[in-house]
Design a protein around this nucleic acid. Sequence first.
DNA 1: GCCAACGTTGGC
DNA 2: GCCAACGTTGGC
Length: 134
Amino acid sequence: MSLWLVKSDPEAYSFDDMEKDGKTSWDGVRNYQARNNIQLMKKGDRVLFYHSQIGKDIVGVTEVSKEAYNDPTTEDIRWFSVELKFKKRFKKTITLESMKSNEKLQNIGLIKQSRLSVMPIAEFEYDEILRLTK
DNA sequence: GCCAACGTTGGC
DNA sequence: GCCAACGTTGGC
């Protein structure tokens, strides 16, 4: 099982929307690196959900419920989507600020590559984030 | 609202 | 194939 993180501007699509919908098609990604990551996602992979712009925090976990398929929002066959389902909301969210000041999270994609919207997360990073929610 | 970072486009 | 111009993202 692999671990990932996706970003969303809550004004466009928030974790509240995600919880309400139960599952959603993660489409509209128009960046090759993010696209490549989407194609690597497997059913059952855990995906952290991060709010960009507003909040700037990881708010919970989703799970890949359907592997890569052609992005339904475009005719362009270069782009792919996955289906994500709501898994769990964190009692305490993890802010970007707290990650920046955490020794173990210095190399997390969120900090290293701030513009990438779909990125892999290392197991120790995932564990550390979960630990911080407690 | 500004601007740095960075990806994409298009002229040459 | 290079690189300037331009557009977008996202933190501040």
